[in-house]
Write a protein that binds this DNA or RNA. Structure first.
Length: 138
RNA sequence: CCAGUCGGCCGGACGGCCGCGGGCGCAAGCUGGAAACGGCGCGUUCGAGGAAAGUCCGGGCUCCACGCGGAUACGGCGGCGGGUAACGCCCGCCGAGAGCAAUCUUAGGGAUAGCGCCACAGAGAACAGACCGCCCGCCGUCGCCCCUUCGGGGGCUUUGGCGAGGUAAGGGUGAAACGGUGGGGUAAGAGCCCACCGCGCCGACCGUAAGGAAGGCGGCACGGCAAGCCCCGUCGGGAGCAAGACCGAAUAGGGAUGCGAUGGCCCCGCAAAGGGUACGGCCCAUCCGUGGGAGCGCAUCCGGGUAGGUCGCGAGAACCAUGCGGCGACGCAUGGUCCAGAGGAAUGGUCGUCACCGCGCAAGCGGAACAGAACCCGGCUUACAGGCCGACUGGUAUU
RNA sequence: GCCGCGGUAGCUCAGUGGUAGAGCGCACCCUUGGUAAGGGUGAGGUCGAGAGUUCAAUCCUCUCCCGUGGCA
């Protein structure tokens, strides 16, 4: 963990769709999705804001704040080899900065726990590999 | 000072710390690479708007179509003159309308080129019409008066009926009813006549023009809708940077060449058997035979093209200053400046000071609009906290 | 980013320059011992919003709002 973690941005639509199949953590100001990639290495991170958040100005602002929060917190709480997608919610542009940081950090910690403990079964349930492998019992 | 009208401008400022995107540069350092060069890093510089928005017009640019030109169809525009690359935009002016005024609004060609529509109400609605009413005539009638040869006649008045009579002033309907007011006139009325107003025609003169207009003539006729069809004038080929150009993986498929394997199926040639025969080894060719092709496999190469990538992509109808021309839109000249360019998309986080607004005696607390370039430019439209400047109008006060 | 289509009753849709309609649904009544079906009656509309043209606009024109589809 003392090796400097390399952040890599997710840019392609396919990457975002893949992360949707992983674990997720919802907080009042943010929704974070995470999924372990096949190959290890850098921390992947992407940001997204739908039109529900607001106009172009509000969406840009939400993504900027999420980007800054990720810049501060992801090196500590993120895991190498995992892709994260931070999704803006309606309160993201106007939320107090401390509360937003709290939500992001909290969600990242929770996701790390989920990925480590629940990795054998929990992620695979939703994983995109499900269609290929025979469907497990629910 | 109060109320109002118009035009122009701004859209918080400065500074710490940590970060972001583009350009340029880089001695050393880390890293990839054979190298060229690149990544990290370091330095430096630039980094959203007045609407970046809506995508409603006009252009540039690109591709497609098309001999030029013109016509038709379809669509846009529509007072006149000017500005402009162009416009449906802007400026000035004209006409019409609103306002005490400053000023504002105005899709504003043609209704005797033609077609169409004008509901309901109303008597009548587009070559108009006559319900009530008013008047006249005829016949009757209540009352009064006059004349009388006593049969009746005439006049005034009340009222009723009839009329292929007059009239359109009044009532009433309607968005709109073949001018309005007053007077004369008449049986009653009427542009029937007159005055003024309105309307129509002509029009000296003024203006580049739209148009204005002294004056004259005409008793008055020609309703509205063309953002209904249409006519006239004028403009327009279509699509759009997801245009378009270039590079181009994996997989599948296409083509060329070579090699290999060829049992069957398919196609072509030969013709032994077989069959036909006009008796010419002339004709036919289902299996077997034989030669070839196609098909099959492998290799190499070629072209299209998907994912993806590169370009298109910003020195411009650019901006700033000054001067000159113009009422103005704008133009010209000189000098200066370089000013965003991504591709899940760059301006954020935090702290401080000042300025603005609200609350509060105060310390202080809270607020700060509309909104994010995506090929570029000129307009229009729409959204918007707060503030600044200038010009003008009306009122009030003072002089 | 560019281009197109649509908005009428709770729902699905007609409609035309002068009256706003149909089917389903809803309410009440009849029918039935009681429902369903059937029959009858009725309620329910800023015709997405605002301007303009017109005597008159759901309709014609312009601007805005919302929804929806296509284009590499």
């Amino acid at each position: 963990m003392n090796t400097p973690p390399i952040l890599r941005r997710l840019t392609k639509r396919a990457q975002f769709l893949a992360v949707r199949q992983g674990a997720r953590a919802v907080r009042s100001h943010v929704l974070i999705e995470a999924r372990r990639r096949e190959e290890a290495g850098a921390i992947g991170v992407g940001f997204t804001a739908s039109k529900k958040v607001g106009g172009a100005v509000a969406r840009n602002r939400a993504k900027r704040r999420l980007r800054e929060a990720a810049r501060q917190l992801l090196p500590q709480h993120g895991q190498a080899g995992v892709d994260y997608v931070l999704v803006a919610r309606q309160s993201t542009p106007e939320a107090p900065w401390a509360a937003l940081l709290d939500d992001v950090g909290n969600a990242l910690i929770r996701l790390r726990a989920d990925l480590e403990t629940g990795r054998p079964h929990a992620p695979k349930k939703r994983a995109s590999s499900a269609p290929k492998t025979p469907t497990e019992s629910d």
